[in-house]
């Protein structure tokens, strides 16, 4: 946290935001996309008998944790692009930083996620750095934590992202 940060952003640090539940259940078929994209043949996710023996039934690849809270890009009634990790996009807009990348990601994995689960989450802004310049441009780093639960209230995972919002060096701030 730095003294030059606008007060309304400082006020958000540590405050849970966007506490919502997914509007669709966890889908086994969508999990296959991740397995196919990474050519992951783990029988835990392909063989019902192995899943039954080891985990009491099918579970989803653990790295898909965030997927179940990532909205479809559009849904009826949406008047803008639906995005995951809304706090990240809020910071870009509020700090006037048009570009952003992620630099670090942590996943802490608790109860397995299963097909049919409905996942809920909330996002917490943990910190925002002072101005920094990298090879991409000038901006700020921020850390956002996300806690995920299933429909029974079981903790299924905690995730942390470090993002870097920036303006390319050759651009001039408005």
């Amino acid at each position: 946290m730095t003294a030059d940060l606008p007060d309304h952003i400082t006020a958000l640090i540590g405050k849970p935001q966007y506490r919502v539940s997914a509007n669709f259940p966890v889908e086994r078929s969508y999990g296959f996309n991740t397995l196919a994209a990474t050519e992951n043949g783990n029988p835990l996710y392909w063989d019902d008998d192995v899943a039954a023996e080891l985990t009491g039934g099918m579970t989803m690849p653990v790295s898909t944790l965030s997927l179940w809270m990532r909205p479809h890009r559009w849904e009826p009634g949406a008047d803008e692009e639906l995005v995951a990790l809304k706090v990240h996009f809020d910071l870009k807009e509020q700090l006037g930083l048009p570009e952003a990348i992620m630099s670090d990601n942590t996943l802490i994995l608790h109860a397995p996620v299963r097909p049919g689960d409905v996942i809920s989450h909330h996002q917490v802004l943990r910190s925002v750095s002072g101005p920094k310049t990298t090879k991409l441009g000038s901006g700020r780093f921020w850390v956002i934590d996300i806690e995920y639960h299933n429909q029974d209230g079981d903790l299924v995972g905690v995730e942390s992202y470090t993002g870097f919002g920036y303006r390319r060096t050759e651009e001039v701030a408005p």
Partner: peptide, 14 residues
């Protein structure tokens, strides 16, 4: 980022 996480998962469980 999430796809990189998935590649790490595949590498570890292989």
């Amino acid at each position: 980022t999430p796809n990189l996480a998935a590649w790490f998962e595949r590498y570890i469980t292989d």
